[in-house]
Design a protein around this nucleic acid. Structure first.
Lengths: 244, 244
DNA sequence: CGCGCCATTGACTCTGGTCAACGCTAGTGG
DNA sequence: CCACTAGCGTTGACCAGAGTCAATGGCGCG
């Protein structure tokens, strides 16, 4: 962990000293790192700056030069775009294993904020890009991730363009459960660390409509609203509403 | 062009015999092919199946195995997703230079139809993927394209989630003009080969709302509606409405 | 000439937005 | 320990932007 501490000292970031090494990383197999051999993992680890962010901290902002890219290891990140008048559209919630900045472009196209406490592996973009150029299969992996992101984005376009409020909320809950299940957090009780406003800005609705719709789903015994989350009582019913 | 003819015979596709070679390709510099050296271009050309599609022809359908990938060289392609009940969301219009199937996934996530007559370079996905594995800079180029696609998708999410009908239409017109300008078709008169229904399904509106909104913009002298297109009389006004 | 398709326009409806009140909980300070 | 406050979520009443339904117009094609 020598290098990690060096990085922390150099960058002045709030690093996670004593963090487990990549070899023990809980999300490695769900992240781009799954494409790496033992020695490559070490090489990448040498480039990584493990970093923690408190709730509501900004990881980066739209249009700002993209000096870093990030591998989320813990927590949830909201990705959003703002219109000049302040309207906000959340384009996604990043979960452990997700990669931020995978377009590798000069500037960030979105802003990113920690929802709750968040841990990431941060990389200098230039160094990361240089490393990638020596490891085509890592670029291939990154490209797979981009393809997956694009697919999620297209699903979200359908949701925003063509679905009713109830369909949006049901689809959101079912979709989040699926994503959590894929990274090993299977559960009928879904934690919703983000605010109602976040959900509304993700679904293209208002906070009131989200609230009313969840209340209606709860009244119909499809979900049970619990503190900071919901229990999916009839997931199959939600899937039917979501119509996927 | 021997190979092309062989391919045509083998596949039974409606190929463009006598098509210009890649070296003369008008959209090469706007396509992934711009990343290629002379010899690489020849190698890729050997893998390509130049193909033409008539208006409303299907290039591929959602969930179908992705045997081919495509480089659009001429015309416009609509990319869409359908909900089980028939609601449609168009997730994009592909223009010359655009690449279809860049996720390189096993199955297509969207359906693709020719709007008018369309020419493409088609590739067997497996052969294309194999070639790419030998040319990391081509994968890099493909990844850049994916990043750009993702960025467009995120802009569209903002449009669908947070913009009014008038903003959507103005944004659509301005955005299409920009894309055409980037591939060398600068003009204040914008061809709209797609139907009103297509525009509506792209913007998350109904055909009536698109029609009314365009009529209002025309009444305000911001645009002039001409057969199969519009003339942008006050592009700066449209940009102001689009609020970008 | 007549048919069919697409676009436009009008009248009316309705889903979801707006505005406002209220309640619950956590944090603060007396 | 409890009053007070701030922030978030819920609920209600009302409103408006976009959808629905229907009629009409224009154009291309047989």
């Amino acid at each position: 962990m020598q290098l990690v501490e060096d990085h922390c000292a150099k960058t002045g970031q709030d690093c996670a000293h004593g963090r487990t090494a990549c070899a023990d990383c809980k999300v490695r197999l769900h992240s781009i790192c799954a494409a790496l051999e033992q020695d490559e993992l070490h090489a990448l680890e040498a480039l990584s700056h493990p970093t923690r962010y408190g709730a509501r901290a900004t990881l980066f902002s739209q249009d700002e030069p993209a000096d870093s890219v990030f591998n989320v290891t813990e927590g949830m990140v909201r990705l959003y775009k703002l219109l000049p008048d302040g309207r906000r559209q959340i384009v996604g919630f990043a979960l452990p294993g997700d990669f931020l900045g995978l377009a590798l472009m000069d500037r960030f196209g979105v802003s990113a904020e920690a929802v709750g406490d968040v841990s990431v592996c941060r990389f200098q973009r230039k160094g990361f890009a240089a490393y990638i150029d020596t490891k085509p299969h890592l670029l291939r992996r990154l490209h797979e991730f981009a393809g997956h992101e694009l697919s999620l984005a297209q699903d979200q376009m359908v949701l925003l363009g063509r679905r009713s409020a109830e369909e949006r909320v049901a689809s959101f809950l079912v979709g989040l459960r699926e994503r959590l299940a894929r990274i090993g957090q299977k559960s009928v009780t879904l934690a919703l660390p983000m605010s109602r406003q976040d959900i509304a800005d993700f679904l293209g609705l208002t906070i009131e409509t989200v609230s009313r719709t969840m209340t209606r789903l709860a009244r119909d015994k499809a979900i049970l609203i619990v503190p900071d989350g919901v229990r999916l009582l009839r997931p199959e019913h939600l899937e039917a509403i979501a119509a996927r």
